[in-house]
Simulated scan of single mutants.
Amino acid sequence: QHLAVVAGDMLEMMGFDVSIAHSANEALQLINRLPRIDLLFSDIVMPGGTNGLELANHIRERRPELPILLASGFSNAQQKDALIYPLLDKPYTYEKLADALHELL
């Protein structure tokens, strides 16, 4: 939860309006409720039984045009996910997040 707030602060400093969801279920509710979402940024490890990769797959079905960036602190995540979505290694700095978003958007 604390990492979500730190990432949200970084994104706000970059000029994004941020809505934080603390579970995949909350994120899906936000996607359905908010009129405009420009990006999904999620950790692969999430509370609530659904991980960030599963969340990304659900959202990709509903919103195929939505850019998705995932973060992970596990080195095997790159192998497991075959990089369907861009993956930012944790820990990351403001600059690394900005660079990843620049490439994605």
Rank of each mutant, 00 (worst) to 15 (best):
E54M: 10
L53T: 14
E54G: 10
H2E: 13
E61C: 07
V6G: 01
L55S: 10
K80E: 15
L83R: 13
V45E: 15
I31A: 12
V6C: 03
D81Y: 13
D81R: 08
R62N: 13
S75A: 14
L87A: 09
L53N: 14
I37H: 10
H58S: 13
M46K: 09
Q78G: 11
D17E: 15
L97Y: 00
S42Q: 01
Y85H: 10
I37P: 07
K96T: 14
R62H: 11
P91R: 00
L28H: 03
G15K: 02
R60M: 12
N32D: 15
A7R: 05
R33S: 14
G73A: 11
E54Q: 15
L105D: 06
L66C: 07
I37T: 13
D17R: 10
V5D: 12
I31Q: 11
L34H: 09
G48Y: 04
I84K: 15
H22C: 06
L70G: 04
V5I: 09
A27I: 04
A21H: 06
Y94K: 11
H102R: 11
A21G: 08
Q29T: 11
R62P: 00
D99L: 07
T93Q: 01
D99W: 01
A77D: 15
L3D: 13
A100T: 01
R62I: 14
G8Q: 04
N25Q: 12
L53C: 10
Q78N: 09
A21Y: 02
D89I: 01
Y85N: 06
H102V: 05
Y94E: 08
L3F: 06
A82R: 14
P47W: 00
K96M: 10
P47R: 06
M46H: 05
L97E: 00
L28R: 12
G8A: 05
A24G: 13
D9E: 12
V45A: 13
A100Q: 08
P86M: 01
A21V: 05
E65T: 15
V6E: 09
T50R: 10
L39H: 02
A4Q: 07
R60L: 09
P86N: 06
G15S: 05
P47C: 03
Q29D: 14
G73R: 05
A71D: 04
G73T: 11
